[in-house]
Design a protein around this nucleic acid. Structure first.
Length: 266
DNA sequence: AATGGGACCTGCGCGC
DNA sequence: TGCGCGCAGGTCCCAT
């Protein structure tokens, strides 16, 4: 499940690997992942264009092209970008001027590729909340004011704050010792501050370790991310809490599996 | 405003 | 052992 740290890792690696290279050939093995525009326009708009820059906004990757257009890529659940790839079994592959392939793999076919005139006009982008690293603790506290909704689904709401998904929401709440079902507005000032600090700390450390390889995520090189060994609660149902030995609980919250320590998190 | 559900999608793991 | 069902979650969308 690529979240901010995974997408940021891919962004940094793509910046090193493919910026300055030209797209010379495109293979579409599964057209479903191309959401915009038509297949023909997609091919025509990408061929012989140079990759100028790679950006990340929330969990969305943006490749700026020499034509002024941009290729946006959302990895969703099982998307991978692999370079150099092999163009075998990929959903879409791009042969670059290096004569190597950049592969977009996606087992569950939920990923989305778009070729856009203006990525900033995308609804997802217009409605995106602030990046956690662009916020002050005071701003974060204000954002929680009056929000009666449960804190964990709120952290995962991309229009509230962007980049946090199921895994890092669970990990940050554990470290802040906050129960995932607490009403956001009910957190004490101290807890809000603690939560904000732990969100940034968890995301930063996960970036440092190049993400969490659970399920399908891989780095651009094809190597797994190394943050899984630091998970405290995610996917640890029934296993002892590292702090108090109480078995980690899993509940369903807003339709998502939610892991927490019933003793440490209040 | 908040909440709940379904849809998309495939492979895996579980229970019978 | 084999089969079928539920689950995994990012995002959108609809209903209440």
């Amino acid at each position: 499940m690529p979240e901010l740290p995974e997408v940021e890792t891919v962004k940094q690696e793509l910046q090193r690997a493919v910026v300055g290279k030209r797209i010379v050939e495109i293979k579409i093995n599964h057209p479903k992942v191309i959401k915009q525009p038509t297949r023909t326009a997609f091919l025509k708009g990408l061929k012989n264009k140079t990759i100028k820059n790679i950006l990340r906004k929330g969990k969305l990757l943006i490749m700026e092209l020499s034509s002024g257009k941009s290729l946006t890529i959302h990895l969703k659940m099982t998307g991978q970008l692999i370079y150099p790839g092999c163009a075998q079994g990929s959903r879409v592959s791009f042969r670059l001027s290096s004569n190597k392939w950049l592969d977009f793999n996606d087992q569950r076919l939920m990923g989305e590729l778009r070729l856009l005139d203006d990525w900033k006009a995308l609804k997802f982008i217009r409605e995106l909340g602030p990046e956690p690293f662009n916020l002050t603790v005071e701003q974060f506290k204000q954002m929680l004011m009056g929000r009666k909704t449960k804190i964990k689904p709120l952290l995962m709401d991309q229009t509230f704050i962007c980049g946090i998904g199921n895994l890092y929401a669970a990990e940050a709440l554990f470290r802040a010792r906050i129960h995932p079902q607490r009403a956001a507005t009910s957190l004490s000032s101290k807890q809000k501050k603690m939560l904000f600090q732990q969100i940034k700390k968890v995301l930063n450390k996960a970036i440092k370790y190049k993400g969490s390889s659970v399920d399908q995520y891989l780095q651009v090189t094809g190597s797994p991310g190394n943050y899984v060994k630091y998970h405290k609660v995610y996917d640890r149902k029934g296993k002892p809490c590292f702090v108090c030995k109480t078995p980690i609980k899993r509940i369903n919250l807003a339709g998502r599996g939610t892991y927490f320590c019933p003793r440490c998190q209040r």
